[in-house]
Structures are given as C-alpha cells and as structure tokens.
Lab assay of single mutants.
Amino acid sequence: MAMNGTITTWFKDKGFGFIKDENGDNRYFHVIKVANPDLIKKDAAVTFEPTTNNKGLSAYAVKVVPL
C-alpha cells in the first residue's frame, strides 16, 4: 500500500537518501528506485511503497510529487 513522505536527506554523489514517512519513521531509498530522479531534493514530497531490507525500513517505487 502506497505511503506519503518527505525526503529528509539526499546524498546525490552516493545515490541514496532517506524519507520520513507518514508515521514519522525514516526509510532508506536508492536513486534506481525513483521514477523521476531529476526531481529529487531535500524536503520534496514523495509517494512510495514501503518495504524492509536487511538494514531496516526502506522504500521502492518512489515518485517525487512535482510542485
């Protein structure tokens, strides 16, 4: 089920960042999981599918909501 969130941290040079989800949890995401990576920036609103990996909470099918 899709969730909403906000990008809180973005490491462009490393290709990953973190999203604060609607429950207040931080989720890892990688640029290859983003549909529109050219719009990635700190504080951008996103929708995504929540999941977990071996390191904890993460996100896939991430879409940055255009302003």
Rank of each mutant, 00 (worst) to 15 (best):
I32M: 15
D13N: 12
D21W: 02
D21S: 03
F48Q: 00
N23S: 06
A45F: 13
Y60M: 14
T51P: 03
R27Q: 01
S58R: 05
D25L: 08
D43E: 08
N53W: 08
T8I: 12
I7M: 01
T8C: 11
P66N: 11
N36K: 05
G17F: 02
D43F: 14
K14V: 06
N23K: 11
F48W: 01
A2E: 13
Y28M: 06
I7Y: 01
N54C: 11
T6L: 08
K41E: 10
L57E: 04
S58I: 08
D21T: 03
V46K: 01
K63S: 08
W10D: 01
T51F: 13
D13F: 09
H30V: 08
V34Q: 03
T6G: 02
L39I: 07
P66S: 13
A35P: 03
R27C: 03
F16E: 04
H30W: 06
M1R: 13
R27H: 04
A2G: 10
T9E: 11
G15K: 08
K33R: 15
N53Q: 07
K42G: 04
N4Q: 12
K20N: 07
R27E: 01
G24A: 04
T6N: 08
I32H: 15
V31L: 09
D43I: 04
G56E: 04
P66C: 12
T9Q: 15
K14Y: 10
M1S: 15
F48V: 00
S58K: 04
G56T: 07
V64Q: 00
N53R: 10
F48C: 02
K41A: 12
G15H: 07
D25S: 08
T8Q: 09
G5Y: 02
N23L: 09
I19C: 02
I40Y: 04
V65M: 12
P37N: 04
D21L: 03
G15D: 05
H30L: 09
D25G: 07
M1K: 14
K14P: 06
M3E: 03
W10Y: 08
V64D: 01
M3K: 07
G15F: 06
F18P: 00
K33T: 15
S58E: 10
K14L: 12
V64C: 04
D43N: 14
W10P: 01
A61Y: 09
D38E: 14
V65R: 08
N23V: 07
T9M: 14
L67T: 14
I7T: 01
K42Q: 10
P37R: 08
V62C: 03
V62T: 01
W10F: 11
D21H: 02
T52F: 12
V31W: 10
A44Q: 06
G56A: 05
V46S: 02
G24S: 05
N53E: 07
N53H: 09
T9P: 01
N54L: 12
T6W: 14
F48Y: 02
N36Y: 05
M3W: 07
D38N: 11
F11D: 06
D25C: 10
N53T: 15
S58Q: 11
E22P: 04
F11V: 06
K33V: 15
S58P: 03
F11G: 00
Y60A: 14
T8S: 09
V65E: 09
T6I: 14
G17Y: 02
I32C: 15
V34N: 04
I19V: 04
V65L: 14
A59R: 01
W10T: 01
K14D: 06
E22Q: 10
Y60L: 14
D43P: 03
H30E: 11
V65F: 10
N36G: 03
N4T: 14
I32F: 14
K63V: 14
N4W: 13
P50Q: 04
A61V: 06
M3A: 04
F18T: 06
T51M: 13
V64E: 02
N26Y: 15
D13Q: 10
I32S: 15
E22T: 09
T52E: 12
P37K: 07
K12M: 07
F48G: 00
H30Y: 08
I7H: 00
G56M: 10
V34A: 06
M1D: 10
K42V: 15
V65Y: 10
D25T: 06
K63H: 13
F11K: 05
N26D: 10
K20T: 14
A45R: 14
I7P: 00
I40E: 00
P50V: 04
A2F: 12
A59D: 03
R27V: 06
K41N: 06
T9S: 14
L57S: 04
T8L: 09
G15L: 07
A61F: 10
F16Q: 02
F11I: 07
L39C: 13
W10V: 04
T9R: 13
Y60C: 14
Y60E: 15
T8P: 02
T6R: 13
G56D: 04
I7Q: 00
A45Q: 12
P37H: 05
V62I: 14
T47L: 09
K41V: 10
F16Y: 14
K33Y: 15
D43G: 15
G17C: 02
P37M: 05
G56N: 06
L39W: 10
E22H: 06
N36W: 05
H30M: 06
F29V: 04
A44Y: 04
I19N: 00
N54P: 12
M3C: 07
V46C: 09
G17L: 02
L67P: 13
M1Q: 11
P37D: 03
V46A: 02
F11Y: 12
A59F: 03
I7S: 00
K12D: 07
M3P: 03
I32T: 15
N4D: 06
L67A: 14
A35K: 14
I7E: 01
V31P: 02
F48I: 01
K33D: 15
M3F: 06
A2Q: 14
I32N: 15
F16N: 02
I19A: 00
T52R: 13
V64H: 01
E22D: 07
D21Y: 02
V46W: 01
D38Y: 09
T6E: 05
S58V: 10
D43L: 10
K12H: 09
A2W: 11
K33M: 15
R27N: 02
D43R: 11
N23G: 05
D43W: 15
P37F: 04
D38G: 12
E49T: 15
V31C: 10
I19M: 04
N54F: 10
L57R: 06
G17H: 01
A35F: 14
L67N: 13
Y28G: 02
W10E: 01
I19T: 00
K41G: 06
V31Y: 11
K20C: 14
A44S: 07
E49H: 15
L57N: 05
E22K: 06
Y28T: 03
A61I: 05
E49K: 15
F11W: 08
K41D: 06
V65D: 07
Y28K: 03
F11Q: 04
M1H: 13
D38W: 15
V46F: 00
D38K: 11
F29M: 02
A59W: 03
F18K: 03
K20P: 00
I7V: 08
D13W: 09
N53L: 08
G24C: 09
P66Q: 13
G5D: 00
G56I: 10
K55N: 10
L39P: 03
V64Y: 02
N4G: 09
